[in-house]
Amino acid sequence: MGSEFFRQPTKRLDREFRALGGRRLDRSPGGTRYIFPDGGVQYVPADVMPGRARAILVSVQERYATRDIRPKDDPLRSAMKRDGAPDINADTIAMSRHANDRFELMATQARLDRREIGDALRFPEQVLWSPTHESWMWVRGRVIVAVAETDQGINVIRTIMWATSDLWEQNPRPERSGGV
C-alpha cells in the first residue's frame, strides 16, 4: 500500500475514506470519526500506527469499494471501481521519467502512439483505482495509464502498462525477458 502509510497514516486514511464516499463527522485531539453514505461510522485514532491503519483501510474497502474478481495475471487485478477520479486536462498533467521510459519501450515493441495515451485519458473505457499502486488507472484499448494526483493538484502519469496479460507476454519488459 505504499510507504505513505509509514509517514502519514491518518492523512492517507482521510484521502481513501473521502474517495470511498466518507466525510469527516468530527475531529478531536484523540482522533477523527468518519461517516459513510450508508450511515456507517469509522473512528481513526490520531496516533494510529501504520499496521493498524492498513487494517482499518482494508476493512473499510471491503465494505465500501466494489472490486472485480480478476485472474492473478490480469494487469487490473488490484483495481477497483470507485468515485473520486481527478479531472484530467493538459494544464494539470505531467509525465514521470518512468512513464516516459515505458512509453518509449512500448512504442518500440508494438508501435504505441501518443494518441493512444491521450485517448485513454480523454475517452477511457473505464477508470479504476489501484490501492496497490496508489493511482488511478485510465483504461482504453491496449493501454492502462496510471495517474497519481499530487498535493499541489498536478496529475502525474506514473506509468503506462499493457491492458492485457497477452500484450504483456508479447511485449515483456527487457529485465523480465533476459535483457534486450
Rank of each mutant, 00 (worst) to 15 (best):
S3A: 15
S3P: 04
E4H: 03
Q8W: 03
T10V: 05
K11G: 08
D14T: 04
R15Y: 13
E16K: 15
E16D: 13
E16P: 02
F17A: 01
R18Q: 15
R18A: 01
G22C: 03
R24V: 06
R24H: 00
L25C: 06
R27K: 12
S28V: 01
G30H: 14
G30E: 13
G31P: 08
T32V: 08
I35C: 01
D38H: 03
G40K: 06
Q42A: 11
Y43Q: 12
V44I: 09
P45R: 15
P45D: 13
P45W: 15
M49D: 11
P50E: 05
A53N: 07
A53F: 01
A55K: 14
L57R: 11
L57G: 02
V58M: 04
S59V: 03
Q61P: 02
Y64Q: 05
Y64W: 15
A65E: 15
T66M: 09
R67N: 10
R67T: 00
D68F: 04
I69D: 14
R70A: 14
K72M: 08
P75V: 13
M80A: 14
K81M: 11
K81S: 14
D83W: 02
D83I: 08
A85E: 15
P86T: 02
P86Y: 01
T92H: 08
I93F: 05
I93N: 01
S96G: 05
S96M: 03
A99E: 05
N100C: 06
R102F: 13
F103I: 07
F103D: 00
E104L: 15
L105V: 10
M106H: 07
A107K: 06
T108M: 12
T108P: 11
T108V: 12
A110M: 14
A110F: 14
A110H: 13
R111G: 15
L112I: 07
L112V: 07
L112A: 06
R114V: 14
R115A: 06
R115N: 08
E116C: 15
I117K: 00
G118P: 02
R122H: 03
F123E: 05
F123A: 03
F123R: 07
P124S: 00
P124G: 08
P124K: 11
E125D: 15
L128N: 13
W129E: 11
W129D: 12
P131H: 08
P131K: 09
E134K: 06
S135A: 14
M137Y: 09
M137Q: 13
W138H: 11
V139A: 04
G141H: 10
G141S: 13
G141V: 10
V147C: 10
E149N: 10
T150K: 03
G153Y: 07
G153D: 02
G153V: 12
N155L: 14
V156C: 10
V156A: 10
I157H: 01
R158E: 06
T159D: 08
I160L: 11
W162D: 00
L167N: 09
L167V: 12
L167T: 11
E169N: 02
Q170D: 04
Q170C: 03
N171K: 07
P174Q: 12
E175R: 10
S177T: 08
G179S: 12
V180A: 15
